[in-house]
Design a protein around this nucleic acid. Structure first.
Lengths: 196, 196
DNA sequence: GTCTATATACCGATAGAC
DNA sequence: GTCTATCGGTATATAGAC
């Protein structure tokens, strides 16, 4: 990689990082292009050169997460040797993400709000969640059997995980690990039949 | 009521209605005071006179919902004669609100996003959800017994209801009534002990 | 690639007439 | 109470120098 390419990659990474931080704290509408560029140690011209627009930066940011998140889920899946272990690991991944701080949930809410205004954001959301549902269905396959009726565990599990994380944000004490795991087990038992 | 007071009440109602519509479609940051006032057939001066600021309108709006929502839940509670009936009624109230269109969920997301930036909004959210948890705990009291361990059904049920409605927004077909009821029953069974 | 400078437009809020 | 007019500030995006 030439020095030019290195510098370019650094600029791109810095802009993505600054965008994530500012979108989460000030909101997508509230974070100005100038503020993001300044936080990255660059100017607005650099952002437009790399991503074309503020929305371009947003989607590049989301794309980079999908890779990280799917990798994390795959790792959890490989480590778990029972359904209970898997449920606990899944909740840990959501409640204490390896990413570090809890800014991902703030950004997720921003994205949901933004989906009300942007068709492209809504389509993106639909694609991403459909993939997550499939992943949950696949990973629970060895342990549960889907009943004949049209119920899927994937959407129900993702719904509960997201909802529990929201409740935890309102009051961290009320959603204990024990409560989360018990609720998740309950949803699995309610929407699928254990095979063992 | 004098004609002056009537006119004032009409203006207030029109501003609240316009605010709900525009906050939901354009976001709290994206809905300008002028646009809200114009949609209500008034000018920005009227809004500042009634609510003091854009945030003032937002909180007045939320306050008016709490009354409507708690009344709706109380009605559902009175009509249900079994836990299954109650679960189904609860899901109906969320998925097909009497209010009409589905703009309440859009506004709820806006509020969650806004809570990242406003302490007052965060406190409001905490108060409102704590009340909702208590209401669920109370209404399920006749049918389930809370175990000795520190698990509560309220936060888990609200979490799942909210999460399911989000999933339904991504793909309306994937969250069938059957799936929602099965998942809710599962969460109740997982976090509490039936008394009957 | 990154900068400065700038075009163009809209924002929330206020003042004062009526 | 509601209006018009307006202030001061900030937004996204572009043009062109380097």
């Amino acid at each position: 990689m030439t020095r030019q390419e290195e510098r370019r990659a650094q600029t791109r990474a810095a802009l993505l990082d600054a965008g994530a931080a500012l979108f989460a704290t000030r909101g997508i509408a509230g974070a100005s292009v100038d503020a993001i560029a300044e936080a990255a140690g660059r100017t607005s011209g650099a952002l437009y050169d790399h991503f074309g627009s503020k929305e371009g930066l947003l989607f590049a940011l989301l794309e980079s997460w999908v890779d990280a998140a799917t990798a994390a889920v795959a790792a959890e899946q490989a480590a778990a040797t029972s359904l209970d272990e898997w449920v606990a690991a899944m909740w840990r991944a959501v409640s204490d993400p390896p990413d570090g701080d809890g800014r991902w949930i703030a950004l997720e809410h921003e994205l949901w709000s933004y989906a009300n205004q942007s068709d492209e954001a809504r389509r993106y959301l639909a694609r991403r969640y459909a993939a997550a549902w499939d992943a949950i269905d696949a990973v629970t396959g060895p342990w549960v059997e889907h009943p004949a009726e049209a119920t899927r565990v994937g959407p129900a599990v993702i719904a509960l995980l997201f909802g529990l994380e929201m409740m935890r944000r309102v009051d961290p004490d009320v959603v204990t690990d024990q409560l989360a795991v018990a609720a998740l087990r309950g949803v699995l038992a309610g929407t699928a039949v254990p095979t063992t």
